[in-house]
Amino acid sequence: MEQKRTDQSIGILLDKFPMVSDFLASFNLKLEDDSLTFVEIVTGLPSSFFEDQATDAQQLLELFDEFMIGLNETQIVQSIESLEVLAGIDKSGKPEKCSIKLIPGEITCIVGPTGSGKSRLLADIEWLANKDTPTGRTVLINGDSPDDSRIAQMGGKLIAQITQNMNFVLDMSVIEFLRMHAQSHFMMNVDEVVEEVIKLANDLSGEPFQPETPVTFLSGGQSRALMIADVACIGQAPIVLIDEIENAGVNKKKSLDLLVKKDKIVLMATHDPLLILLADKRVVIKNGGMHKVIETNPVEREFYSELEQLDNKLQLTKDYFRYGNELKAIGEIY
């Protein structure tokens, strides 16, 4: 057992956990001497302070303890070896036809028409369903049903989502924003990570931005690229869900490669055949139920190269006209 955190001087704590200053700020505590421990600071507070904050010394100390325990818990890196969703029932109450197993570094597509129940499947995973959702599905982590403490620790933190209609809304520059995000996960090498994320994002979108650019000024493609790079490098969620980013203006293949390289479990809801065939497998959702799992077969992989060529041609054509050219003879573009 390491030395109790609250026994260390507030200066040392602030150094290790910059977030402690937010806690102090939320109670309007101003530091005069940072060699004191938190207990000493609280003991020295005038009674008018407690009146203003409507608290007392004991409560404040308890809150600080909890806060420090909370900090500690968020540091636990969430890694999982496998995640299974065991069949429940579909919208008509019939048993689902199959279960799925997801492992890190693997890409799985969820296919099915709008309203078929893709979101419900994701929600079941997110909340580690244990026959307690409308679908009656069970989610296993590393082969086991997670116990309560595991659920408390992981609940709501399993899945990182990237969708078409998400935007950055904070009034901050890219670099400030990434730093804050990295600090909130207590990363040690913040500057290094932030630099990596910006580099990757610029690579994914192909239209570079400066670290000082406000996040709200980024174009659609740049935003998406930054979100993907951020989720891959800073985000702690072991599962990444990508929802229909086919028109996002990022290099899809590079994006997926990056997430796979960072050992994420990648789930993709998409209608784009290129993305579907890039995946290792796909689960078909019908009437709210998991209908079947199809592994991408060798024929499909071969077909992918053909599709890719088609896609490249289309891309070249788009760029050709975008840059103001006029077509005089067939074959000028590619």
């Binding site: 909890e66 968020t74 709501g156 989720v231």
Partner: peptide
């Protein structure tokens, strides 16, 4: 939270847990 980035959601959750470490956060 469906309108903001994953990172903003994570930071928001973190800020909540800073002032109230015991609470459950639901999106």
């Amino acid at each position: 939270s469906d309108l903001v980035s994953q990172a903003e959601r994570e930071v928001f959750r973190f800020k909540i847990q800073q002032v109230n470490s015991k609470c459950k956060v639901l999106f």
